[in-house]
Nucleic acid binder design. Structure first.
Length: 294
DNA sequence: CACTTGACCTGTCCGC
DNA sequence: TGCGGACAGGTCAAGT
């Protein structure tokens, strides 16, 4: 559920809250959530500080001054929440979706000399955080295979078409969820983008007319950007670096909107299963392409 | 090789 | 009220 806009929101928040602070203690529990040894932590994380925070797809890279980086994937229920004085500047502490930390979902806690602690929480333990040399990040198999960043200027329509060539015979929904085609799209933005482009998610990639793919290309960029401006989508677990919700879901047209009227035609939004995922559509507005158009 | 399905987890919700 | 089971979805391994 943390997809590109949510991870980007966390990145911006952490950049404001933890850069330059000295790490004085690191506590971690399960091997699955944090596979590094105590020696790694002692040698490359303790007594260092975060220098920059980057994002690639749904992955965060927290670079530290030792030449190592913490790679973080939040998967479905992961959260990176900073607790300290600064985090509560503007709003109220109780706007936070998360309570007192650490709690039973806390997997890693990183405490700073200046006060404040960064918590990695993950209810379902699908997410992970791992420490590795900064220079080795892009040698990780998952990182090497990632497709282009949809919000960069270098991501053009022709590049989008070229990427889709890799998945010509599958459904467009499966193609959008494939991180090697495009990096950062998950279930929410796949459904919203396909609705905006009026394409049925079960359409076969090679059968979709080029001008419809152009609409999809534009919708992806616009929707991801808009969601970042709204602080991402809080469906159930997602919170930003201050533990607060994003508001994109209030603007969603179809995601989790089954039985409510389509904003375009008024017919009910329905839910089906495509590519093994809950999928939300207006079956009247979104056209199904299964035969190659001449 | 291309593509689909199941496993990994745990909290929540629904029906009985 | 309690309980079993379905469901949520990102990624990888296993299956077709």
């Amino acid at each position: 559920m943390p997809e590109l806009p949510e991870v980007e929101t966390v990145r911006m928040g952490l950049s404001r809250l933890i850069i330059g602070k000295n790490i004085i203690s690191v506590d971690f529990d399960t091997q699955k959530s944090f596979p590094n040894s105590q020696d790694d932590v002692d040698n490359f994380l303790l007594n260092t500080s975060f220098t920059s925070i980057r994002r690639r797809g749904k992955v965060l890279m927290l670079d530290v001054s030792s030449g190592y980086s913490l790679m973080v994937h939040l998967k479905m229920t992961g959260q990176l929440v900073y607790r300290g004085e600064e985090a509560f500047g503007a709003g109220h502490p109780n706007e936070s979706l998360v309570g007192i930390l650490p709690d039973k979902s806390t997997r890693v806690a990183i405490t700073f000399a200046q006060g404040g602690t960064l918590y990695f929480n993950d209810q379902r333990k699908f997410g992970w955080m791992k420490l590795l040399p900064t220079a080795m990040i892009f040698d990780e198999p998952f990182m090497m295979k990632l497709g282009p960043e949809p919000l960069t200027d270098s991501f053009t329509f022709s590049q989008f078409l070229a990427q889709l060539k890799k998945r010509q015979n599958t459904t467009i929904k499966a193609a959008l969820l494939d991180q090697t085609v495009l990096a950062g799209i998950g279930n929410i933005y796949a459904d919203e983008s396909l609705y905006a482009a009026k394409i049925h998610p079960e359409s076969i990639v090679k059968c979709i007319p080029k001008q419809k793919l152009k609409l999809l290309y534009t919708a992806i960029k616009d929707i991801l950007q808009f969601s970042i401006e709204k602080g991402g989508a809080t469906d159930r677990n997602y919170v930003n670096a201050e533990g607060k919700k994003g508001s994109y879901i209030d603007f969603a047209k179809v995601f989790r909107k089954e039985h409510t009227p389509c904003p375009n035609c008024g017919r009910a939004i329905i839910k089906l299963r495509v590519a093994g995922r809950g999928t939300h559509i207006c079956s009247h507005c979104q056209k199904l392409y299964r035969e190659v158009m001449k």
